[in-house]
Design a protein around this nucleic acid. Structure first.
Lengths: 148, 148
DNA sequence: TTCGTAGTTGCGACTCAGTTGCAACAAGGA
DNA sequence: TCCTTGTTGCAACTGAGTCGCAACTACGAA
């Protein structure tokens, strides 16, 4: 089942305001990049796009803002290690956990929500007496267009 | 009856020899470290331990050997991002995929094999027409001793 | 509207993991 | 023993991310 992607633009700004967090020019630029992203971006891609909005944005401000959003639980950090071996990618956190599937040939990332995944997490919590805070499943392989 | 978890020391050496790959002093040192490790090690820990065997081993040789073992499919690379935010860890690849659960408080890594996980992978392959090469599930949370 | 201040910024210098080019070296087959 | 090819240590480099600091600014209070 595909994810519903539509969100009100400016939602992240609102969420930060609700928490009494200061809004600044660089922050607005970075948030708008994250909100309007059509794919997963890493820190340097976010920096480059944010500079189209506000040319003075600094690398360290991007990292600090990503930190802030992580601490506030508004974005998730992914590895997508299968894709190009390295790098952290960021995405808006929507309600449900989902699985990331990276095609090793064309690089496409597919997201997937699964009841079985939810069941697996419940099983882990029960069988291992483990309280899950975060669960990330990353899959590498070949998508339907690239499989051979 | 105890589980047959023990491995003959030198097994990695044998596997490389079977593939006609040259054996050298530094390589032997690094392989023995990986084979006798009681927990997941990162590259710098492997370097430190390998130097106890052969003091001249270089950082770059460790990375090159880890690359070799990855390419040969003899080790897996993990992120364990939940544990300390960074770093790649390595482990012998045994037959079965397993889940890594990292306790955010005590740092313990628990491994878990699950039929539900296997079912989830089958479901992904079927529903998304995706050919899975590798699937990594990393869970962060609190273990039974640390939960609150 | 102005003011004060705590939070934020850009900057530059730094750390740390990992990579690379290269000349010297050595494994292992002939 | 020799030869070839793969491997090594080294040193220099890259790229991601961090940090201390002085200058700046958002925004609530006056």
């Amino acid at each position: 089942m595909p994810l519903p992607q539509t969100e009100i633009p400016g939602r992240l700004q609102t969420q930060l305001a609700e928490r009494g967090i200061r809004m600044t020019g660089p922050r607005r630029a970075i948030l708008s990049v994250i909100e309007t992203a059509s794919k997963h971006l890493d820190a340097s891609q976010i920096l480059r796009k944010a500079r189209n909005v506000d040319a003075s944005v600094d690398r360290s401000t991007v990292y600090r803002t990503l930190d802030l959003l992580k601490r506030q639980g508004l974005i998730d950090e992914l590895d997508l290690m299968h894709l190009n071996g390295e790098g952290h990618y960021y995405e808006r956190k929507l309600g449900r956990d989902h699985i990331h599937m990276a095609c090793l040939r064309c690089g496409k990332i597919t997201e997937f929500v699964s009841k079985t995944f939810e069941a697996l997490k419940k099983q882990l919590e029960r069988d291992c007496q483990f309280h899950i805070v975060v669960a990330r499943l990353e899959v590498g392989g070949y998508c339907s267009a690239c499989r051979h």
